[in-house]
Simulated assay, not measured.
Amino acid sequence: MKDADIPREQALLELGTQLNVLLSSARAFATETAADFDPPVSGASFQVLQRLHSVGATRAMRVAEALAMDRSALSRLLQQLTQANLVEAYPDPSDGRVTIYALTKDARKKMDRALANKGSRFSERLRGWSSAEISQLSGLLARLNGAGRS
């Protein structure tokens, strides 16, 4: 049976299965990498660090929204990460009532190493893929990620 002959419901189920495998793999990597930090951090803390690494200094509210995380849970994580000298907090220059969070220099170096390791693992998985296949997957994922956004 060709891909075009697969019923839509079956194709959607297979897509869901493959996305779950991908997300589980990403969570497992985050948990492994988090344990390698000094001091070790939780998987959830690693996600916060990864978000701050990708967007730079930002408000806690934006991190909570991006990670679909409860604000009080995020507040506790940010406090722990600040005490571990992985995150620094300072008043927002445009509104002193709001706190901005950013990675410390040490945390940025650790994240750079962690993400380089992740990139190596990812490159290994795609070793046999052509540039066209990688571009096609990237485009399809971008389309999926943009779905439902206004």
Rank of each mutant, 00 (worst) to 15 (best):
I100T: 08
E88T: 03
A89Q: 15
T58I: 01
F37E: 09
S72W: 04
I134T: 09
L52W: 06
R127L: 11
S135L: 15
E133M: 08
A34V: 00
M61L: 11
E88N: 02
S123M: 15
F29W: 12
M61P: 02
A66V: 10
V98F: 00
L141P: 06
L78P: 11
P40M: 09
R97G: 01
P40Q: 10
V63G: 06
L49N: 07
A44H: 08
Q47G: 05
L74F: 04
Y90A: 02
R121Q: 15
V87N: 03
G139N: 13
K110E: 13
G128C: 07
A30S: 10
D106Y: 09
A28I: 14
I100K: 10
D38H: 15
A132V: 12
F29H: 07
S25I: 02
F37I: 08
I100H: 05
I100G: 04
S75N: 07
V87T: 02
S131M: 13
V21Q: 14
L137C: 10
L52D: 01
S138K: 14
V48W: 03
R76K: 15
R62V: 06
A11H: 08
L140H: 07
V41L: 01
R71E: 13
V48S: 06
R59S: 07
T58A: 04
A11K: 09
A116V: 04
R127K: 11
D106T: 14
L144Y: 07
